[in-house]
Structure formats: structure tokens, C-alpha cells
């Protein structure tokens, strides 16, 4: 057993790339669910919008990197929010849930369809769209940085990720202390009350869906840049629930909740992942129980189980308080 590798992975989980992707996605969900009460179960599609917005702009359409950013962070998520929001935001909360989860499935089918291969690259996805990003990399590709956790390219992704993450957190913090955030919270508590006081609840919900979606798109775009590929597999339906677990774990309706949640979640996931792999590789794990390919499935089980246990036993998360926001009220 290589305990050094296990510990290193634990720390990479706390602050590394997946932490960045998913805390951004979870911050978007926090805007949706934590502050506005929207049940978005399709955050993975918003993430995909960021990833595919950038990669399709560069690879399929031949535009430059900056247009890709615009398409991925602004255009695609906004369109997506309109498509999912216009029919559902007037209706009961679970309709949005159904439509968003249906959108995830539609994304999966469309993105994998060979008939659209020349636009999306189908199952293999798209690659080679992020060169421009790495051109700016000031770090030496061969060297390790930050206590040896990241090599040069990773360090660059992680560094920009941290900066974006802090900016998004600042935006959330500022808007939630403003009258705008107050209206969102009012809608979360009681939409009719907000409406009776002259607030256009539909439009505010739409704004929240759009902005939270853009945060998610940022997360997805980082995932595409970090892995240098945009693949359907990275944005399937179940990916959404990694962000959900991160959100509930840290505590919804808190600025730092999703960040803390994502850090803890990826610490745990990375730890068990490497730990189990090492058990398998070193022959401590009987093959009847688990082989190498099954290790990857365990993390999904943990996500499912995590959702169940959190929702039942700790709906306010680790850092949240019941008075302010908890999953089990309403």
C-alpha cells in the first residue's frame, strides 16, 4: 500500500481540479435551490453547455478561444435556461425537476449520437480546444508545484480555478446581501407572497436559473479545459448529483457551503477511490467482491447513499443552521 499516494490524493481532492469543477457547479445549484428554491436536477447539462460551448466554438466552428468563452459561459447557458425555464417556472417545483433531468438525458442522447458526429464528436467528444489557455501558462510543465501536488499545467488550471471560484463566491455574497437576493429568498419561502408584493417571481426565478446555470457552465468549462476534452461521459445525469451532495453536505443558502461541501466530498471520494484501487492492485481485495472497473462504480453508490443519508439525517448540512435553510422544510 502506497500511503503517500493516498494522502496526496486526499489533499488533491480538497483543493484540486474536481473540487473546482464541482464547487462551481454546486454554487450554481446554491443559487438555484439554496436561495431561490428551484429544483434543478440538470446541472450537468449546464456544465456540458460550458464545456461544449467552448469546444464546439473552437473545434467545430473554428472560432477563437475568446469567442468560445463567450459561447460557453454566456450564450449556451442562457439558451438552456430559457428552454428549461420558460415552460416550467410558472408551475409547481417538481416540473422543473422533471424537465431538467429530461434535459440531461436529451443531452446524453444527442451528444453521443453518431449522426451528429461532425458537430459534437459523438462518444469521443472534442479535444484540442484549450491550447490558447495553456499558452498563458507561466508554470514549468515538467515541475511540480504546491507541495508537489500539481504539475505545471494542472497548477495553471487550479490557480485560475481558485481565482474564478473566489470571484463567483464574491458575486454570490454581494448579491445575496442586496435587495435582489432578498427577492430570491422571498420566492424560495413563498412565491405567492413575493408576487402579492409586486415582485415578478417568474422573471426572478429565470434570472436565478440563468446565473446559477452560468456558474455551472464555468465549472463544466474548467472540467473540459482541465481534462483537455469535452466528452458526453463527463456530463451524464448522475454528475449533477455530485454537485447536489456537495451543496447539501456544506449547507445550502450559505456562500461557503458548496465550497466546503465540494472540498469534503472530493476528499472523501478521492480517498476511497485510491484506497480501493490500491487494495485491488495489491491483491488485498478478493476478486469476487470487486475488480478494478468496479471501483469507479463505488463512488456513484456513495453519492446515492450520501444523498439519502444527508436528506434524512442532516438536511441543513455540516455548516448550515436549520433556521435559515434546510432541505426538509417548506
Amino acid at each position: 500500500m502506497d500511503w503517500g499516494a493516498i494522502i496526496q490524493n486526499l489533499f488533491r481532492g480538497f483543493i484540486g481540479e474536481p473540487f473546482i469543477y464541482f464547487s462551481l457547479a454546486a454554487m450554481g445549484l446554491n443559487m438555484h435551490y439554496g436561495y431561490t428554491g428551484l429544483l434543478n436536477f440538470g446541472q450537468a447539462v449546464f456544465m456540458a453547455a460550458g464545456a461544449y460551448g467552448l469546444s464546439m466554438a473552437v473545434v467545430t466552428l473554428g472560432l477563437n478561444f475568446w469567442w468560445g468563452l463567450l459561447l460557453g459561459i454566456v450564450v449556451f447557458p442562457l439558451l438552456l435556461a430559457l428552454i428549461m425555464g420558460v415552460p416550467t417556472l410558472r408551475l409547481r417545483a417538481d416540473y422543473l425537476a422533471i424537465v431538467t433531468i429530461a434535459a440531461s438525458e436529451m443531452f446524453r442522447i444527442i451528444a453521443r449520437s453518431p449522426s451528429l458526429d461532425r458537430w459534437t464528436g459523438s462518444s469521443d467528444g472534442l479535444t484540442a480546444f484549450a491550447n490558447r489557455f495553456y499558452d498563458f501558462n507561466p508554470f514549468d510543465k515538467q515541475k511540480r508545484y504546491f507541495f508537489g501536488l500539481f504539475i505545471g499545467n494542472q497548477m495553471w488550471v487550479v490557480l485560475i480555478g481558485w481565482i474564478v471560484l473566489s470571484t463567483v463566491a464574491l458575486i454570490v455574497w454581494m448579491t445575496m446581501r442586496s435587495p435582489w437576493g432578498r427577492v430570491l429568498r422571498a420566492i424560495r419561502e413563498d412565491e405567492d407572497a413575493a408576487r402579492s408584493l409586486g415582485k415578478n417571481a417568474y422573471w426572478f426565478k429565470m434570472q436565478a436559473l440563468m446565473i446559477g446555470g452560468m456558474f455551472g457552465a464555468l465549472g463544466g468549462m474548467f472540467r473540459a479545459i482541465g481534462t483537455q476534452s469535452a466528452q458526453p461521459q463527463n456530463f451524464i445525469t448522475d454528475v449533477t448529483f455530485f454537485a447536489w451532495v456537495a451543496l447539501i453536505l456544506g449547507g445550502a443558502a450559505r456562500v461557503g457551503g458548496p465550497i466546503a461541501g465540494a472540498a469534503i466530498l472530493y476528499g472523501i471520494l478521492n480517498f476511497t477511490d485510491v484506497f480501493l484501487r490500491q487494495l485491488v492492485e495489491n491483491g488485498y481485495m478478493p476478486e469476487v467482491i470487486m475488480d478494478g472497473t468496479q471501483v469507479g462504480q463505488v463512488r456513484f453508490m456513495m453519492i446515492g447513499l450520501g444523498l439519502i443519508l444527508l436528506a434524512i439525517y442532516r438536511p441543513q448540512g455540516i455548516f448550515g443552521t436549520k433556521e435559515e435553510m434546510a432541505l426538509d422544510e417548506r
Binding site: S178, P179, K199
Partner: peptide, 15 residues
């Protein structure tokens, strides 16, 4: 919340 025509109820001005 009851106050009408609040400038801060726009996302960009909220910032």
C-alpha cells in the same frame, strides 16, 4: 421586501 421600485432588485445593480 414590500418596497416598490427598488433599484437594488436588478442583478447588476445589486453588485
Amino acid at each position: 421586501l414590500g418596497g416598490t421600485e427598488q433599484a437594488g432588485e436588478s442583478f447588476f445593480r445589486a453588485l
